[in-house]
Structures are given as structure tokens and as C-alpha cells.
């Protein structure tokens, strides 16, 4: 395809017993932002690592700007920028030194390096901290520097692997604003995230991936229309009542109700209307409701709707900087069985 900047064609990758990617197909049009949404261990990072030439796929083909990532790995590296889950900047170097180092290693002309570093520092609002070792930076500043480092050589294709994981809401919004600016300049961006909100805000198209394959793909509006708009959460005084209630409200829901102890959750289309109907039904059956709430669907609910199973979420995720990300991800993927 002429306009495809990034193509994954039936790519598989196995780590020992874990099938991290299982025939993943993906096409990203040049100049657009594509979101890869999924829980820990879904294969997001593995997909990015294949596309950035860090690992070779076992099967299938991956191309960036028409170049195969295995046979033309060196060429591909000239065209991409990568910012990972962890701020991969050198803590002993200042912000400016980090950017200059990246400029040198990306083989920029010597005379362009200093100017480019200064310009990025200004753009990412790091000028005041530019000559301080980056170990003194806050988490948000380190992420901004990390993103700046990925942009030094103006790569036409950019990969951001969970760029805001672990950031506070303020820093997250700051980073989003910067990413939106980049996109306006025409960079092709593949972004992985665990946050529905992030994919929704930044990406034109989104693929939901689970167990190393795409389970849903489309614009975020298309995806949302396929999901429940609201979740009705009910709590009862005993598990028996919860079980009975689940049976009674299931006909009102878009997916089977989920029972956990005394809690019942159902995905519904029309929140307020269904709430009234559900309470009426429960009242007629003589069930006493302990609490009731309507809430926005979380990624968890999206997964439940799309896959019928819960996302593997209870994990020491990429927020813990000590964990070794490329080894931990397949381990997490292995927790689920189909």
C-alpha cells in the first residue's frame, strides 16, 4: 500500500512458552496517529520492539516506510524515533548533553546538533533545567526529555510506548499537548497505551489488542459505538441476592453480567433508563440493593465487552521502574488462557 507508513503483516513472536504476538496485522497510514490499546502483556511493547528493530519476528513481515525491519534494519533506524515506557535518558548527563549525545549518535551534522538541542529544550520547556543533570528532574520533565531525545533527528515515524504511564494527571496533559503539536506537523505516530482516554484523545484510529492479536480496530468513535456506553454497578448484602440479581438484569444489558461476591456489574446502553428498569425489576423480586451507581466504562469494561473476559490487570505493571520491561511483558501475557 502506497500510503502505509507502518505495516505489520501477520507478525508472530514467541518468548519461550509465551506467544507474545500471534499473527498481528496492522496498517498505519502516513501522517496519522494510531493507538495500540491493550492491557499489560497484550503484546503492545513486543509489537513496538519488532517495528523498531530491537527484536526479530518469528514469522510475518514488518515494514516501516516500505522497508523491511529485518532485511533493512539499519535503514529503518535512520527513519524512526522511539520513546519507551521508561525515560531512557542518562541521569548523569544534563538535559542538553543528553540531546547532544542523541544528535551525535543519530549522525546529525555536527554544526546542527547544538542548535537542534537548544530548540528542543525550549520547545519542551526544559531550558531552565537544561544544564542540570537529568537525575534532578521530576518524572514529567524526564519524560519530556525522553520524548525530545526521540525527536532530535526529526524522524518521520515515531513510536511512543506508553508515554504517560506512571505520570500524574497534570504531567500527562502536558505531554498530550506536546504530542498533539507533533502530529500537527505530519509525523506518523504509533502510540501504545493502557488508557482508553489517551487513545481517544490522541489517536485517529485505534486497535485493541489482546493475547498478541487485534480484537477490534477502527476510529475511536467506531469502537465506542461497539462498546457499552455506561456501566451499572450494584451491590447487595449477600452473594445469593447478587447471583439472583445478575440473572434478572442480564436481559437489560449488552453483555453478560459480572458477579464478584456481593457486587454485580452490567454494561448497558442507556444508563438512566436501564437503571430505573433494573431497580423496578429487583424490587418486584424482593431483592434489597445495598448500593447503586452508574459509571463510565473503563478499559476493563471494553475488554469484557470485546472479549468476554477480564483484562489481566492485577500486575506490577510498567509503573515500577525496577522491573525489566522486555522480560516482564511476556511473563504477564502468559497468565491468561483462552
Amino acid at each position: 500500500m502506497k500510503d502505509a507508513a507502518i505495516v505489520l503483516d501477520h507478525v508472530s513472536k514467541r518468548f519461550g512458552p509465551v506467544q507474545a504476538l500471534d499473527g498481528l496485522d496492522l496498517t498505519v497510514t502516513a501522517g496519522t496517529v494510531y493507538g495500540l490499546l491493550g492491557p499489560n502483556g497484550a503484546g503492545k511493547t513486543t509489537a513496538v520492539r519488532v517495528l523498531t528493530t530491537l527484536i526479530r519476528p518469528d514469522a510475518g513481515q514488518a515494514r516501516v516506510l516500505g522497508l523491511d525491519v529485518v532485511s533493512h534494519a539499519a535503514d529503518v533506524r535512520s527513519l524512526i524515533g522511539l520513546a519507551g515506557q521508561y525515560a531512557a535518558v542518562d541521569a548523569n548527563l544534563t538535559g542538553r548533553e543528553n540531546l547532544r549525545l542523541m544528535g551525535r549518535l543519530a549522525h546529525l551534522p555536527r554544526r546542527a546538533i547544538a542548535a537542534r538541542a537548544g530548540e528542543l529544550l525550549e520547545r519542551f520547556e526544559l531550558t531552565d533545567a537544561a544544564d542540570r543533570p537529568s537525575r534532578t528532574y521530576s518524572g514529567g520533565m524526564r519524560r519530556r526529555l525522553d520524548l525530545a531525545a526521540a525527536l532530535v533527528h526529526r524522524p518521520p515515524v515515531l513510536f511512543l510506548d506508553e508515554p504517560t504511564t506512571g505520570l500524574d494527571p497534570h504531567s500527562r496533559r502536558e505531554l498530550w499537548a506536546i504530542i498533539e503539536e507533533l502530529v500537527a506537523e505530519g509525523t506518523t505516530l504509533l502510540l501504545t497505551t493502557q488508557y482508553l482516554e489517551e487513545a481517544d484523545r490522541l489517536a485517529g484510529r485505534v486497535a485493541v489488542i489482546d493475547d498478541g492479536r487485534v480484537i477490534a480496530e477502527g476510529t475511536s468513535a467506531e469502537l465506542k459505538s461497539r462498546m457499552a456506553t455506561t456501566v451499572l454497578a450494584l451491590a447487595f448484602h449477600d452473594p445469593g441476592s447478587a447471583g439472583k440479581a445478575a440473572e434478572l438484569v442480564s436481559p437489560l444489558a449488552t453483555a453478560p453480567a459480572l458477579v464478584e461476591g456481593t457486587d454485580v456489574e452490567v454494561a448497558v446502553d442507556d444508563g438512566p433508563q436501564t437503571l430505573v428498569e433494573a431497580l423496578r425489576t429487583l424490587d418486584r423480586a424482593g431483592l434489597v440493593v445495598a448500593s447503586v451507581a452508574l459509571r463510565e466504562p473503563s478499559l476493563d469494561d471494553v475488554f469484557l465487552t470485546l472479549t468476554g473476559h477480564r483484562a489481566a490487570t492485577a500486575t506490577p505493571g510498567p509503573d515500577s521502574p525496577s522491573s525489566d520491561h522486555h522480560r516482564s511483558e511476556p511473563a504477564l501475557a502468559g497468565r491468561k488462557s483462552r
Binding site: 539499519a74 535503514d75 530548540e119 526529526r154
Partner: peptide, 30 residues
């Protein structure tokens, strides 16, 4: 915020370098 202005020529594709250029870059990188 100012927009980026430094002209950065498109990076020559690393895989298309002559052996001598590659060696020169290897020394520079090291």
C-alpha cells in the same frame, strides 16, 4: 512556544553507507 527551525537534512539511510563511511561513523559513535 516557538516552532522548530534548525534545518536538519533527512538522515541518509544507514544501510546505504560505504564501508569507509561506516567505519568513520563507528569511530565517531564509540
Amino acid at each position: 512556544m516557538t516552532t522548530a527551525t534548525t534545518p536538519v537534512p533527512p538522515t541518509p539511510l544507514a544501510g546505504r553507507q560505504t564501508p569507509l563511511t561506516r567505519l568513520r561513523w563507528a569511530v565517531s559513535d564509540a
